[in-house]
Design a protein around this nucleic acid. Sequence first.
DNA 1: GATAATACAAAACGAATGTTCAGTATAAAT
DNA 2: ATTTATACTGAACATTCGTTTTGTATTATC
Lengths: 199, 199
Amino acid sequence: MNKKKLQSEQTKRKVADAAKALFSQKGYKATSIEEIVEATGSSKGNIYYHFKSKEGLFLYLIDEWDLEWERNWQERESLYKTTRDKLFGIAEQIILDDLNHPLTKAADEFFNNEEKGSDIEERIDEMVRRHVEFNRELLQKGIDEGEFSPKNAEQLAVILEGLFVGMSRMSRKTNTENAMQLYHSAIDVFLNGIIARSS
Amino acid sequence: MNKKKLQSEQTKRKVADAAKALFSQKGYKATSIEEIVEATGSSKGNIYYHFKSKEGLFLYLIDEWDLEWERNWQERESLYKTTRDKLFGIAEQIILDDLNHPLTKAADEFFNNEEKGSDIEERIDEMVRRHVEFNRELLQKGIDEGEFSPKNAEQLAVILEGLFVGMSRMSRKTNTENAMQLYHSAIDVFLNGIIARSS
DNA sequence: GATAATACAAAACGAATGTTCAGTATAAAT
DNA sequence: ATTTATACTGAACATTCGTTTTGTATTATC
């Protein structure tokens, strides 16, 4: 079990990468298996050999994406000292990781899905909850250390998450540099709005 | 030409209303003509008699929605004096007009569509531009009158639009009251971040 | 070397969907 | 009263899409 397993993993990766790119660009529904076939050269049957279904493929990508994001962040977190700097660092990672926040767009499609509770909606809800919790801890630390004025960290965390979502949306049609500026300004405003004032 | 024309307009309205509700709830792609048929009692053929296509129907709704929004706002604008109050007023209208910002979700689907430049994408881009311009004028006025500290109004306008988009996203699963609180807090932070300080 | 498992291809299937079309009833126009 | 235009129906059409199935070459196992 060597040559075959290796080859197999390579094609699975190729399919996953192509699907990720397509889902990011076109959304979930708008991306067809046929397009993934064309992008990879693999056959339809082969895709279904490696992944249970289209939904399963998407789920796989979400998990992978989120894990990777967390790994990347943990590697970089120590580079930033203040919570302020960390926020800027997060924005930078969001933009650089992939300008268009890979699956955010596709995620939008499921965010409001009253259909027969697909697994995907559940998973995305969980991801958002994790993000908010992540933000909350970050902000709470800033508050505790006197960097920010004491406020409802939970609500601020939701606002911050929304701000990121909104900025991602607004910067989809610009280049990296402009996106960076926009995120930076947005965080500036946000921080300025919650900063502890010595007056 | 009376009784028939009247009846005709009524059914067209009925279709438009049902479609608006469905698109808002499920998104564009996920809403089928068949579902509109079921929701209205009209036949498929009849829908295509009143509207050129599914895309045409959606376009019609976007235009109508935006016009209505602007009318509503112009009626209420005089109720608010400061730019600050106007922002709160806008948030209130966004929430009350329809908690889930009717077509925002569906609009998301087209925001990043690299397909054969559908008319819809164009139209939505234009709508966003108008919103940003609207925000810009509002903020510029606040800056000119000394309410806010002088900053790049254009960029702030984009941030504000993104903030609204993000808040809409984050409040999709809550009730009106919570949404109101969230928007209010978000605007508070935003205003606090750009306010002119007398210190 | 025979057998079994694996990785893949190609075609077919079945359901769903947007759109069109032929036909019909009713109201308006002549 | 007859003709015409309008509002509408229901079935048919053409495609697309996710998924399944059947078959096959290649590699691992014994």
